[in-house]
């Protein structure tokens, strides 16, 4: 009986090849979303989307196709290279193969529909916020000034508008140096670029590597509308962050002559968030100062906004 079973089991081996063929046909035809599926999905989301809605593509590897079809209007830099999802009131998730983005866990699903091979789900943020000031929009000489502080002396960094340095043919190449940036005497700079985070996701942020040797960068932002909190993130380019070390970079925030909070970023901790309550400043507008210090020039990047719960 045992031998008989073995013979039957051996005889069934060619069926593995048959199953392989059947799966292959399915995976290369029925499972592949077509261009028209993507175009239809875009039309559907575009019809329902409100200003400030987030559009996500699942799984993450499908993101380039989503960006290609949805374009800057629906899936531009601000959404794709977002600091996190908390600032968005609603999110559309466009998914292939039934995938789901973990970022939306805990959000309330409002609707779901199928467009060809794609599934479109609409989610609501359970704790929506109102962003009052986003530093990424203020990195211009009109709203920001940067100086390098060394031995209590402040040396202004100069605003430059020129060609960027987005890397060459070799990898790894580090972050792009943006064309528009404040350039400091030590060679460090302050400007907005997209960070390749430890999680391999993109994050727009202000690159502001401290000059080292005990020096710091002082960034002053004018016209900041304060809310209930100061919310932000910090990180170091993946290339450096992937090797954890004892290095730390600190950013200390102050406004109206008093400290608001200090964030310490340890190399290796990835793109991490921070939040400092500022209820006493809510409703005020004024200058905010960020002092960045650290042990050496690293591809350090941070961002912050001021916010209050959505009305």
């Amino acid at each position: 009986m045992k031998k008989e079973l073995l013979v039957w089991a051996l005889a069934a081996v060619p069926l593995v090849g048959v199953a392989e063929l059947a799966l292959h046909v399915k995976q290369t035809t029925a499972d592949v979303a077509s261009d028209s599926d993507w175009r239809s999905a875009r039309a559907s989301v575009s019809a329902d989307a409100r200003t400030g809605d987030l559009v996500l593509f699942a799984p993450f590897w499908a993101d380039p196709i989503g960006r290609e079809f949805f374009g800057d209007e629906l899936a531009g830099l601000a959404r794709e290279a977002r600091p996190d999802e908390t600032r968005f009131a609603r999110a559309f998730e466009v998914a292939v193969h039934g995938a789901h983005r973990a970022e939306l866990d805990g959000w309330n699903k409002l609707s779901e529909k199928r467009v060809g091979k794609l599934a479109i789900s609409l989610y609501a943020n359970p704790a929506p916020v109102q962003v009052l000031t986003d530093v990424l929009a203020l990195v211009t000489p009109a709203r920001m000034s940067v100086s390098q502080v060394q031995n209590n002396a402040e040396v202004p960094c100069v605003w430059q508008r020129g060609p960027g340095q987005p890397g060459g043919l070799g990898v790894p190449q580090g972050p792009a140096v943006p064309g528009e940036r404040f350039v400091c005497s030590s060679g460090t700079y302050v400007g907005v670029a997209v960070l390749h985070g430890l999680d391999h996701h993109p994050h727009s942020c202000v690159f502001a590597s401290p000059p080292g040797n005990g020096g710091s960068l002082r960034i002053k932002v004018s016209g900041v509308a304060f809310g209930q909190s100061l919310h932000g993130h910090s990180g170091v380019q993946w290339l450096y962050e992937r090797t954890p070390s004892l290095e730390r970079i600190e950013v200390a925030f102050s406004a109206f002559g008093r400290p608001l909070g200090q964030n310490v970023h340890r190399v290796g901790s990835g793109w991490t968030g921070f939040e400092f309550p500022t209820p006493e400043l809510a409703g005020k507008t004024g200058e905010l100062t960020a002092d960045v210090t650290g042990s050496g020039p690293r591809a350090y990047c941070f961002e912050f906004d001021t916010r209050s719960p959505a009305p």
Binding site: P64, E80, G164, P166, V171, G174, P175, P178, P202, W238
Partner: peptide
């Protein structure tokens, strides 16, 4: 991905 994101910046 860093190349991708650098192109976005540029």
């Amino acid at each position: 991905n860093e190349v991708d994101y650098n192109i976005w910046t540029e």
